[in-house]
Amino acid sequence: MAINAVMFDFSGTLFRLEQNAFWLEGLADADGTALDVEAQTELMRRMTAPVGQVVELDEEHQYAWHQRDRDPELHRKVYLEVLRRSGVPRPEQAEALYRRLITPGEWTPYPDTEAALKAVSGQGRKVGVLSNIAFDIRPAFSQRGWDAHVDEFILSFEVGAIKPELEIFRTALDRLGVRAEETLMVGDSEEADGGARALGCEFALVDPLPTTERPDALLGALRAHGLR
């Protein structure tokens, strides 16, 4: 069956939170030792990992971790704890880093994000952005004029469901007005995004590499499914 709609994940798929030396300037551990490049890189990975627990947590924060993408308050709570356990002991520094994480303008688009969105919408196909996320990512698109190429934003904290739960995929399909069999899901997580296959969607996996190392994976995924 022909593909008439494409649902894109956000983090690691269309956009990526890139390491920025300015953000991490002056960060030091509990002993006052500045975080080296390796520690900074790991810190960024822990802030943006799509699935999988990145640090050990107590029961209270364990619950917040599992529910983080349904509730902005729980998201903030657990990520401040993740930062603390990752070597950022000063609350003001953790708060500053967290604010960067949830500011859409701080996220960097992949080089072919605009082209991929336009390629799908320009041919009259539906476009959805389907994300496990606890903050509004629409400004990342609207500030570039790309929201014109997105029919629906389906965000977990707004719908109360997270990938790979079938409810969030069903919500996306209903809002786009398409059947699963005519829909392609593009994402960087086999576990989360790949859950769309349980409803009959096609699925394309992309690698959440740094943006400079992944110039055209989105366009490649579209071409592989017969979309030009």
Rank of each mutant, 00 (worst) to 15 (best):
W146H: 05
M185W: 04
A30P: 05
A5N: 06
R214H: 08
L130V: 11
D174W: 12
S86Y: 01
R197A: 05
L218C: 02
S11L: 05
D31V: 09
G26E: 04
G87Q: 04
R125V: 03
G220A: 15
V150K: 06
L57C: 08
A115F: 00
M44L: 13
I162S: 09
I154A: 01
L209W: 12
R84F: 08
R223F: 07
M47I: 11
N4M: 12
Q143W: 12
L209C: 10
A148K: 15
K77T: 15
A161V: 09
H149Y: 13
R100N: 12
V88W: 02
R45M: 14
R99Y: 08
F15V: 01
L227E: 04
F141N: 01
E114L: 07
R84G: 07
P208A: 05
V178S: 06
W146N: 00
P208W: 00
A5F: 02
V6M: 04
S11H: 04
D112F: 08
G32L: 07
E59D: 15
I168K: 04
R170G: 03
E165Y: 06
A148V: 15
R45V: 14
Q19W: 11
E181D: 10
V150M: 02
L227K: 01
A148G: 06
V6R: 03
I162G: 00
A140V: 08
R214A: 07
D193G: 04
G128R: 05
L24F: 12
R100T: 15
E95P: 08
L101F: 03
A94P: 00
V178N: 02
Y63P: 09
